[in-house]
Write a protein that binds this DNA or RNA. Structure first.
Lengths: 138, 138
DNA sequence: TTTAAAATTGTAATAATTTCAAATATGAAA
DNA sequence: TTTCATATTTGAAATTATTACAATTTTAAA
């Protein structure tokens, strides 16, 4: 993912008025590349923004997604996660430690059948398994 | 997906006692390849099984997943869907009509970096866009 | 049959998300 | 500046999805 120098400018260029909350939430997303849930974002930011409302986190993330600077990650059915890296890349979730790892992949030679004339907007690739760390722990 | 001749036998072979509800729910999954949600399954089956409880649908699907004869599909964050085809295949969701289409793909030449020594258990590929039908409707 | 275990059910509890109206902040125009 | 309209944030309540759990029913073996 390309480096973002200035969050305020980045938001403005995306057509988002850079309010304090929006800046903090987006900074959180790019600093913690752990694909956080709404709850994680809220819990981690409230100490610094005591007035923060969880509704604001929901609103803001939805807005970011609409504006195309954040993507939703649905690896698990009980947790919606968010990623400020909107480029096409894969996510690996370790079923032992729960960590989520980014990875890149070629989507050119997937050799997809059946949907040849469909218009593709987004590609999501999720892999579940055991990460190297947890494999070695045994 | 391979044809299942006899649901009762299929469940038994998977180590699942073939109760009436389980048979009906699994039959529903393989007859309606529309990747239903719990609610769809419940609403459609209740007329035929008036005593059916939504908890049973949840329990049963979780059991199917544990036993490996059903997989969870998380394309959208607000709807957990289920698929009796547990082979690795992709899902395309049309953002216009909401239909979900199955497709096959090669996972051999994804050329995945970063997670080379990880143990892969499941691969999920989700694509969103506009299906041929909806493209032509314009 | 009797009985123990398994499966189903309905209710209540929990968790995630949305709705909505009130409060606050912002920024342009006077 | 002050005023005003608009955008944003907030908190409470409502909604929805899911889980927990105890009671009931079913099943199948003894």
């Amino acid at each position: 993912m390309k480096q973002i120098q200035n969050v305020k400018n980045y938001l403005t260029e995306a057509g988002i008025k850079p309010s304090y909350q929006r800046i903090k939430i987006f900074e959180y997303l790019i600093e913690n590349m752990n694909h956080p849930t709404v709850d994680m974002i809220y819990k981690d930011l409230v100490p610094y923004i005591p007035t923060l409302s969880k509704t604001t986190v929901y609103n803001t993330l939805k807005f970011f997604v609409d504006k195309g600077i954040t993507q939703i990650i649905n690896i698990e059915d009980n947790e919606t996660r968010y990623d400020a890296d909107t480029s096409t890349h894969g996510h690996f979730k370790c079923i032992k430690c729960g960590n989520i790892y980014d990875f890149s992949f070629d989507n050119k030679n997937l050799n997809i059948k059946q949907i040849e004339n469909f218009e593709i907007k987004q590609i999501h690739l999720y892999i579940k398994g055991i990460c190297e760390n947890c494999k070695n722990k045994k």
